[in-house]
């Protein structure tokens, strides 16, 4: 056996120098490594990344214009020319789904953003200050939760008028109670910790304690809830669009596509099937990722 070239691996020098260069690993890095290790959340992450790439590159990925009508080519079955077939106006379904990704991501992010901001504020204030403020806020939240969410969204859109923007606002408001409740319960436990008492002891004001000490420590459940909510928001918005209260024609929104195609369900099932599958995969992706995230951020699962 030929002598292997000696790989020189100098022994690590002990002492403060080594210590100083050691990188500060944060709680988030820990969580991230756990997240990537879990198979299901990795699949979820892949779906979400794929979705984002498609949305950004929509003009390159799409084979046709999403709104270009070819009335002679109505209800064509999937083929080499039209990968997923065409709809009742002869538009290419694959291209419409690709462009619809942009709308769905937009809906997901904006609607959840609205829910999160309002929910975190309400839940944070209710949990932190307690007493009558808590009672008032949480009873309003209870009333909101007593309505079926889609009914509440329909009512809101009915007031605001049907459009994609209003659908996002409606879906956002419908999602507020979930955030408010989760944030409130987390705040209730965090505000009893010693480091919050320490913050009070060094003279911090309520605003500072709430926004710099309490809420940053409630981040993990908020992120999990946000991820899981994106799926629900997309689903709700698709529902509104299906009812004609969200995206307006000719916008290639998946829910609206379902609605347009349902008349031909028997003769041209692909018109409905593919947008439906798209919704299914996106929601699945966010749910898998959200569940993985919850496991990764839960310190009790730390070994």
């Amino acid at each position: 056996m030929p002598a292997l070239p000696q790989t020189t691996n100098p022994p690590e020098l002990p002492g403060p120098k080594n210590n100083a260069s050691a990188k500060s690993s944060s709680l988030w890095l820990d969580a991230l490594s756990r997240l990537v290790k879990s198979k299901t959340s990795f699949i979820g992450l892949c779906i979400i990344l794929l979705l984002i790439v498609i949305a950004i590159m929509a003009p390159i990925v799409a084979t046709h214009s999403p709104t270009d009508q070819q009335l002679l080519n109505r209800y064509l079955a999937p083929s080499a020319e039209h990968w997923l077939g065409t709809d009742e106006l002869g538009r290419d379904i694959f291209s419409r789904i690709v462009y619809g990704t942009r709308i769905s991501i937009q809906i997901g992010v904006i609607a959840v953003g609205i829910s999160a901001v309002i929910g975190i504020l309400l839940g944070g204030i209710a949990g932190y200050f307690g007493r009558w403020i808590d009672q008032v806020i949480m009873r309003i939240i209870d009333i909101m939760m007593a309505f079926p969410s889609i009914l509440l969204a329909i009512a809101l859109v009915a007031v605001l008028g049907p459009s994609l923007t209003n659908a996002m606002i409606a879906v956002g408001i419908v999602g507020v109670p979930q955030f408010a409740r989760i944030v409130r319960s987390t705040v209730l436990s965090v505000k009893e910790t010693e480091y919050i008492e320490a913050a009070r002891a060094i003279g911090a004001k309520n605003n500072r304690i709430l926004f710099q000490h309490v809420l940053p420590n409630c981040l993990a459940p908020i992120i999990v809830q946000a991820t899981l909510s994106v799926g629900t928001a997309i689903l709700d918005a698709a529902g509104l669009s299906f009812l004609g209260m969200g995206a307006q024609p000719p916008s290639p929104e998946w829910g609206a596509m379902l609605s347009d195609g349902r008349a031909a369900l028997q003769t041209a099932p692909w018109v409905v099937a593919f947008p439906g599958l798209a919704i299914f995969f996106v929601v699945l992706g966010f749910n898998l990722f959200g569940d993985g995230l919850r496991d990764a951020l839960d310190p009790r699962l730390k070994q």
Binding site: L27, E194, Y195, A198, I202, G203, H213, P216
Partner: peptide, 26 residues
């Protein structure tokens, strides 16, 4: 006040610099 439990009395989301300088910032 100096606390009993050094594990619970420091905000886990802040660096040592932030923790020690916060009273001065306030």
């Amino acid at each position: 006040l100096i606390f009993q439990d050094p594990y619970a009395s420091l905000n886990p989301r802040k660096t040592i610099e932030q923790i020690i300088t916060e009273p001065m910032k306030i």
